[in-house]
């Protein structure tokens, strides 16, 4: 195992955050074994209340409402509703467009996550090695993060505009007629480029700070063991970056599924036609533009289940492979 040299380092066995916190907290306490207890059982609940209220009002309550209305076909104004059991669900999943939207969402998640993680890591590794003007490089790379998604979408839209976009003209110079907004895959391409571009800085910041927290002593020790830069990166740096990468994986998938909403909205100019969209965008279209509350609720419940399943998978299976040091 390549772990061995690390374990020998004097500062290597880093303790968990909670352990270190409790060390710090109990350092002055005469009797470290004694736990702080509230004298009244109600007091901790009072402290918890604001947070609980927020979670209940903004998360559980709407969720329960979504689940309830997913079993009804409802008049938007709330006058009449028909109980239809699971019909909204079967209607949603058997709808041809729903299937294609789901496939696109999955594909979009994989491609955007892979590209933005990969490029973010590549840029971070390279920026980490820059000595002269390092701050300028970093600032330039990070600054994109300050752009709000709708603005990113707008910038993208100008680049891909079918009448005067520079990218459209660039493709035309190579003899390809780029038709973003009309051709399904052309629009998918534009969405991917914008979504990745928007997300790279975020990944870059985290990877860079992850890289900078790798102790110099570890790097120097590794330099003795392996001459190949790639092997040092693969065996030493990458495992140490794994917690960061895992965190970013979760964040990037969430980003692609939910936060690309405004980019899509801007690019399809709120008329999706035959253009690709994500499941979240379809929930919005059916619920807010179509006023089909039951159908839209069923779709959002399906989405909740998918996200819950995905989170479980990530934490149960992927996290086991991650070492937090």
């Amino acid at each position: 195992m390549t772990d061995t040299p690390i374990a020998d380092m004097p500062d290597a066995p880093r303790r968990s955050l909670s352990a270190r916190l409790s060390d710090w907290y109990f350092a002055e306490t005469p009797n470290p074994a004694k736990r702080v207890q509230f004298s009244r059982p109600l007091t901790p609940w009072i402290f918890l209340l604001p947070q609980l209220a927020i979670v209940v009002i903004f998360f559980y309550w709407p969720s329960v409402q979504a689940v309830t209305s997913s079993f009804y076909i409802e008049d938007p104004f709330g006058f009449g509703s028909t109980f239809v059991g699971f019909e909204n669900y079967t209607d949603a999943v058997t709808n041809s467009q729903y299937a294609s939207t789901a496939w696109f969402t999955a594909l979009f998640c994989v491609v955007v996550t892979a590209l933005s993680l990969g490029l973010g890591l590549l840029l971070a590794v390279k920026a980490d090695k820059v000595i002269r003007g390092a701050e300028t490089y970093k600032t330039l790379l990070i600054s994109v993060y300050a752009i709000a998604p709708p603005v990113a979408g707008l910038i993208g839209m100008m680049f891909f505009d079918m009448h005067m976009g520079p990218f459209t003209k660039l493709f035309a110079a190579f003899g390809y007629d780029l038709r973003v907004g009309i051709d399904y895959w052309d629009t998918a391409f534009a969405l991917t480029v914008i979504a990745v571009w928007k997300q790279i800085p975020y990944n870059f910041i985290f990877f860079l700070s992850g890289l900078q927290s790798v102790p110099v002593s570890v790097r120097e020790a590794a330099l003795i063991d392996a001459r190949s830069g790639w092997r040092r990166f693969k065996d030493i740096i990458l495992p140490l970056l794994a917690p960061t990468a895992f965190f970013l994986l979760v964040i990037n998938i969430t980003y692609t599924m939910f936060d690309t909403f405004s980019i899509i909205d801007v690019i399809v100019k709120d008329k999706p036609a035959n253009n690709p969209m994500t499941l979240v965008y379809k929930v919005y279209l059916d619920g807010f533009k179509g006023n089909d509350i039951g159908g839209s609720s069923a779709q959002s419940v399906i989405l909740m289940i998918v996200v819950a399943a995905l989170t479980v998978v990530q934490f149960r299976f992927l996290e086991r492979r991650v070492h937090y040091g």
Binding site: Q97, K271, P272, A273, N274, L285, K289, G290, N291
Partner: peptide
């Protein structure tokens, strides 16, 4: 649900 019907048309026209 005419707004959705319009969306269906737009999709097919593309």
């Amino acid at each position: 649900f005419y707004p959705q019907i319009r969306s269906v048309m737009e999709r097919e026209f593309n």
